[in-house]
Design a protein around this nucleic acid. Structure first.
Lengths: 337, 337
DNA sequence: CTGTTAGCGCCTTCAA
DNA sequence: TTGAAGGCGCTAACAG
């Protein structure tokens, strides 16, 4: 591999000049610039990004931490981030804070440590277990921290978040508008801020419509298919009567559907179900799932733009920190007549 | 940030000694080692991975190229790779050769170029459009290349592949065993090697059972939901009679189901459908999809192990290059009586 | 077992 | 506009 030194020799100029034409930041006469370009070409020169990083104290990499790599949700998010960053010549180091068993909070911290040790110029986190305090502390460190799908007090300008409360509200309101009043709710783990906010939205919609919240129609699931199944099972076993169900994410909605159908419910006639996230598969499910759209891909792009603007001083970027969910009407909700 | 120099000063030893305790490769007396460790601790020292890379000519990063980041398929693959590599202290740089419009082959090459420019120690590719010749040429370069889900002649030892032909065979054979003989096939783009092999397997199963291949029951889809829909539509419009359908991947199977159901078919009674890949959502679909399992996560782990063994000289790793698909029986296939 | 000494390939003042 | 020279933080011979 040719080095800058060989290029300079071949072009008959100094190292510094070659560096200048590479970085386009200082004026170089057209003539010498051409000589350098030709020399690079002839040698098939490629800058060594590691050496550049060491000298410039910039790695041109941004670290991403997601809870899990598989699953329908994060693909879209990473896709957005990667596309934006790569177009700017930065690369993306991805790791997980995943936790099949054990302490998720520690796994997340491990992941963050790992990214920091990689000398990223910035890190974008989608963490669920890490506390606000920890994140605020982390943000005081040397490396800029950005948060996806989360809003931490004091770190607002580094957050890209979704109004989950509004989403939960919309879901339940939609059901109410369709005539339902016996509405069950399967929540996500309440230590996760978004799961909690969605549930709060549900309660607000109920309250606004003078429907009292019924503890017996509330179940906390795990954001997985199983959670949905267990939730419906729980309601059934307790002989609860309900005509509609909101699930705090689509995977639980899918599980709920499966269980309900296997236990004699005709969908959506006997039970209206609404999900949350609008993952790719929501429309594959039968009946096609009515759900709350979570614009993760757009948010991913925005997080990347935020990094480009803050960390890499890119200009002319408008940042939108707060996103709003919308309802996607499909076939899993039926009006109660 | 403290440097190795400050540590050495505080510990009263030389740079080299500090380096030695970091890299655990040379013997250092316990006493001096402890002094160094203490000094590191006191200073909150963290090695600068970039400087390490420059000096050692090792970036400890491996590049991954996948066709797309979203979608159910690659998540599992990357998850396997990432877990394995991270456990070994290597990091993963992910990029895509994705192509919404335009030339996929060029996008893939761009992605590869990008990874090379990042000084990865190795790259793992999941490419579909790149030709065998191009890959062989690439493999002659300085940076080791590994191929996922693909078997290129001459590069066998760097490939982790699935026997797609066998998978296609299994799918169709399963249907035949259930009494079907009018079996439609919706293929993936035939320039993709795996799509082609799956189709070949289908033909072999037919031939073995003296069922002649019927051009009118063959459709080439796009590996997306739409492909499945269009395929069934095509068969219906042509008034073809068939009792079973194999789709070259699960997404098309899902699309096929949707279209069939919307057009009066009762599933699985009127039409048995079998997919391929066993993506996470296969069991969410209704009826639950019978399909061919593609052990992508396991293959991801294996690809990572291969890199660890070849590139990072890790010992005691057994590599399995060829994987075999298996059938997963669920509810979308019904015996013909 | 430990220290000395060159670099790794590039960027960036500082002078000219 | 260009060149010279000193690092960036660490590794890897080579001595001792």
């Amino acid at each position: 591999m040719a080095t800058i030194y060989e290029v300079s020799k071949l072009a008959g100029v100094s190292l510094a000049t070659v560096s200048r034409v590479m970085n386009k930041n200082a004026r170089v006469s057209d003539k010498t610039k051409q000589k350098v370009l030709d020399a690079m070409d002839e040698l098939g020169y490629r800058p060594n990004s590691i050496a550049q990083s060491l000298a410039s104290n910039r790695s041109n990499s941004v670290g991403i931490l997601v809870s899990e790599l598989h699953g329908p949700f994060f693909g879209l998010m990473m896709s957005g981030i990667e596309a934006e960053l790569r177009a700017a010549g930065k690369h993306v180091i991805i790791t997980t804070g995943q936790c099949e068993n054990g302490n998720q909070e520690n796994k997340e911290k491990d992941g963050i440590e790992f990214l920091i040790s990689r000398n990223c110029d910035a890190i974008i986190l989608h963490v669920e277990a890490a506390s606000d305090d920890y994140l605020r502390e982390l943000a005081k460190g040397d490396i800029p921290v950005y948060l996806m799908s989360r809003l931490v007090e004091g770190l607002e300008s580094q957050c890209i978040s979704l109004d989950n409360e509004l989403g939960g509200y919309l879901a339940t309101k939609t059901l109410i508008e369709q005539g339902h009043s016996q509405i069950a709710y399967i929540a996500g783990p309440q230590f996760k801020a978004d799961a909690h906010a969605r549930f709060m939205g549900h309660k607000r919609a109920l309250a606004e419509n003078k429907i009292s919240f019924d503890e017996n129609l509330f179940y906390i699931g795990d954001f997985k298919e199983t959670g949905g199944k267990n939730g419906v099972k729980y309601f059934c076993n307790n002989q609860q009567s309900f005509t509609a169900l909101v699930c705090a994410n689509d995977e639980m909605a899918s599980g709920a559907m499966t269980y309900a159908r296997e236990h004699g419910y005709l969908l959506p006639d006997d039970l209206s179900i609404i999900g949350f996230d609008n993952i790719i598969f929501a429309r594959y499910i039968y009946p096609k799932l009515t759900t709350i759209a979570n614009p993760v891909d757009e948010m991913g792009h925005m997080a990347a733009k935020l990094v480009l603007k803050d960390v890499y001083q890119q200009k002319n970027l408008t940042i939108k920190h707060a996103f709003e969910p919308t309802i996607v009407m499909r076939d899993s909700v039926k009006a109660l007549t």
